[in-house]
Simulated assay, not measured.
Amino acid sequence: MTHHHLQTSSALRRHPHSGFSLIEMAVVLAIIGTIGLGVWRLLPLIGDAAVNSGAAHTQLERAELALTGFARLHGRLPCPDVNGDGVEECGTTEQVGWLPVRTLGIVLPDRLRYGVSRQTAGAGDLAAAVARHTPRWPDGTTGTIVNGLDFCAGLRSAAREPGAAAISFSSGAPLAFAVAHPGSLDADNDGNLFDGDNRSASTFTDPTLAHSPIYDDHTRGLGFTTLAARLGCVEKLAAAHAAHRTAWADHDHYQVALAYETFRAFGVEVRSMNREMAIADVTVASIDLVMATATSLTAISVSISAVGSAAPAAAAAVIAVGAATTNTVFAGISLDNAIEALAKASSQHSAATAYRQRAALQAAASLARARRLDHGGLQ
């Protein structure tokens, strides 16, 4: 028994129990408690950051909607607010400043940095209402009303040639406009709430850049083609151009109809002259017939008195009467033909006049529709 007990004790010493001691468990619990306390203290900060991020995105979305609505209504983007009073300042060529909330008619809790492409060449200043879409109308006038179609034309030109002065994301993508929210902290501790590229004159940090200990801003911006798509520029410009081409086509059609009417009017004049000539021929033939008849009667009378010696003259007079009668008949037929031709020409002229009138109405309607689309802009 004693020997077995000694063997068991020796085995226990060789294979000690692998569990935690009370001291080890206390140390582990203390560490877990410290970590938990730290996490507990960070939870409000994490929650605040999430709330601030959501609020920033909401403000940027409202700003974007206000800017696109302003462009749709005024045919341009607003100029930046350079002195912080919320009103745009177009007296300078500044591309970047504060978002002009009072001009846009919105209220935001934070001041947002705003940039708009204000090139001096190429597409020009997107914050200026400039005539870029100037159709020439068939009546010789030119469209001079400045509205959203001119802005769309500017966006199209800017997309083709952005220019060195355009604002852009840090990735280099040129923008029609951009807006930046500073976040809740001066993350890079430089004394400016805006971090990274958002501090520079014409560059905004790309929205895809993740937040970090030195960056907590939020940005939003639209390129030229994207803004054009938001405004429906492609459809509106296509409709305006199609209406413009239709107006010109109907104008050309009217000119053809007018020329056709003129041609038919000339035909009436020719047929009228032919009728007058036919009437003259009938008159002359009738006179010839009367004279031939009188001559024939005289010859017959002389022939009877001369007891046959004037018979040849009488015969010739009778033949002349026959010839005059034939001429009179043919002159009458020619007159009938001339009258019929004049009636046909008059009918053709009337049809041509009606055709020209319909073409004129169509041309006027097409021109009115084209002008209506041009004047309507993006509305």
Score class of each variant (00 low, 15 high):
193 L>T: 07
311 A>K: 05
21 S>L: 14
359 A>G: 04
356 R>P: 10
212 S>V: 04
223 G>C: 10
162 P>N: 03
35 I>M: 14
112 L>M: 02
78 P>F: 08
129 A>I: 07
102 R>G: 11
135 P>T: 04
205 T>G: 12
51 V>M: 07
167 I>T: 00
208 T>Q: 08
36 G>S: 13
180 A>Y: 10
227 L>P: 00
145 I>C: 08
93 T>L: 07
288 D>H: 03
379 Q>N: 15
254 Y>G: 13
214 I>W: 03
68 T>C: 03
204 F>C: 09
138 P>M: 08
3 H>C: 15
246 T>R: 11
98 W>F: 13
316 A>E: 06
87 V>R: 14
18 S>C: 11
248 W>E: 04
136 R>Q: 14
290 V>S: 11
29 L>R: 08
87 V>N: 09
231 L>D: 03
286 S>Y: 04
170 S>P: 06
113 R>T: 08
364 A>Y: 04
242 A>I: 00
289 L>F: 05
180 A>P: 07
166 A>V: 14
338 A>F: 00
204 F>R: 00
287 I>V: 11
71 A>F: 03
136 R>N: 07
120 T>W: 11
188 D>N: 15
144 T>P: 06
160 R>G: 02
227 L>E: 01
14 R>L: 12
367 L>M: 03
176 A>H: 04
93 T>Y: 10
64 E>Q: 15
331 A>K: 05
269 E>W: 06
5 H>A: 13
59 Q>K: 11
281 D>N: 13
327 N>R: 12
117 S>T: 06
315 A>R: 04
52 N>G: 08
94 E>Q: 05
298 T>E: 12
237 L>K: 03
74 H>N: 12
355 Y>D: 08
373 L>E: 01
293 T>M: 03
74 H>G: 02
211 H>C: 08
177 F>S: 04
173 A>F: 09
140 G>S: 11
256 V>E: 09
343 A>V: 01
26 A>C: 01
114 Y>D: 01
346 S>V: 01
332 G>R: 01
152 C>P: 00
319 I>F: 09
54 G>C: 06
86 G>M: 06
349 H>D: 07
272 S>K: 00
282 V>T: 06
94 E>S: 15
4 H>F: 05
78 P>D: 05
294 A>G: 08
233 C>G: 02
349 H>V: 11
62 R>P: 06
245 R>H: 09
362 Q>M: 13
330 F>T: 12
217 D>S: 14
336 D>R: 00
329 V>I: 15
273 M>R: 09
121 A>I: 05
92 T>I: 15
266 F>P: 02
86 G>L: 14
49 A>H: 13
247 A>P: 00
212 S>A: 15
96 V>G: 10
188 D>Q: 11
336 D>E: 12
293 T>H: 02
351 A>R: 00
178 A>C: 08
300 I>Y: 02
